[in-house]
């Protein structure tokens, strides 16, 4: 029997499935990672680190945690399955300014270092005691436009203005609306709680009293700026002013949605390992080739026979 005849014999019947399987496996062996266009994200997350963020509004593993700690937890959770198409950086807000800590870096290669830097963020970074959220947000938008490419912003705050924002100081954003896109994430609960007071080293020293903070002149005698809750209408207004979307941080999921908001995605070419594709097909062919003989399981009488592969 010559080679040709043998080859033809091998190709007969289900044997012809073997050839494409070999071809697919060879393809997988030599397939380099290919650039695939995928949605990618460039983000700066800015944390309000002022003292009202110390209010324990959230519960984590049966323990009360502060607004800031929960915000950090939610960000870490959203990064848990690190996607190589995301670049992220950190900033903090206090007073009326922000301090940029890390410009956006690629997440999956720098995951542990990013988390270590995130863990470092705490109330001690509050470089001023005031908390002028409106001014801070507007300032932040100017700041991030110095970065290239201009990242999207996720600004996490309870919206508690200290000193309270007098109605005549509430102003519209004077920059170009929409030049920076992003989310304003409301952190906190809607019930009033006392604000823990901390010293410069972050040590707890009781609570803020009503006489220690600037009260609002417009509220008559009912001002309670020493207590804090989530100022949701204020944040919704601010979000509208700068063309952001607003969302309350109800759970870690809420932040994940904001961080992977398709509206913020831009296409990026990500080198992707596609070897699984030809291998899966080859596997399918092989499995089909060796699929069991269903009829033999439904009680056909056994015949004396010789089987072969």
């Amino acid at each position: 029997m010559n080679i040709r005849a043998r080859l033809l014999r091998a190709l007969r019947g289900e044997g012809r499935l073997l050839l494409p399987a070999v071809a697919l496996l060879v393809l997988a062996l030599f397939l380099p990672p290919l650039p695939i266009t995928r949605p990618a994200y460039d983000l700066v997350v800015i944390f309000d680190v002022t003292q009202s963020m110390n209010v324990p509004d959230y519960e984590l593993d049966g323990r009360l945690v502060s607004r800031l700690d929960y915000a950090k937890y939610a960000v870490a959770e959203a990064l848990r399955s690190p996607r190589c198409d995301t670049r992220i950086g950190w900033g903090v807000f206090a007073g009326r300014k922000i301090v940029m800590l890390l410009a956006p870096v690629e997440v999956c290669g720098n995951y542990s270092a990013l988390l270590a830097a995130l863990a470092n963020i705490d109330g001690r970074m509050a470089f001023e005691n005031a908390s002028e959220v409106q001014e801070g947000l507007y300032w932040a938008l100017g700041n991030v436009q110095q970065l290239r490419p201009v990242p999207d912003v996720i600004f996490m705050t309870d919206g508690h203005e200290a000193p309270p924002l007098a109605p005549d100081l509430a102003r519209d954003y004077d920059g170009a609306k929409g030049a920076v896109r992003g989310w304003l994430v409301g952190v906190g609960d809607t019930t009033l709680k006392p604000i823990p007071k901390t010293d410069a080293d972050g040590k707890r020293i009781g609570y803020w009293h009503d006489t220690e903070v600037l009260q609002s002149a417009n509220a008559g005698g009912s001002s309670h700026e020493h207590l804090s809750d989530l100022h949701e209408p204020h944040l919704q207004q601010l979000a509208k002013n700068v063309g952001f979307r607003y969302r309350r941080l109800t759970d870690a999921r809420a932040l994940d949605d904001a961080m992977h908001d398709r509206a913020l995605a831009h296409p990026a070419h990500v080198l992707t390992d596609l070897r699984w594709l030809p291998v899966s097909l080859a596997l399918l062919l092989l499995a089909w080739r060796f699929r069991p003989d269903w009829r033999s399981w439904i009680g056909r009488p056994k015949r004396a026979s010789a089987t072969n592969i």
Binding site: G89, I98, M100, L101, S112, A116, N120, V144, Q146
Partner: peptide, 22 residues
Amino acid sequence: VTPFSQHPDVIQAGITAAGVSN
């Protein structure tokens, strides 16, 4: 900003950020 790490990208990102900050 960042504790010790051998991720040069992260340190560079911190240095970039230091230029942006006010």
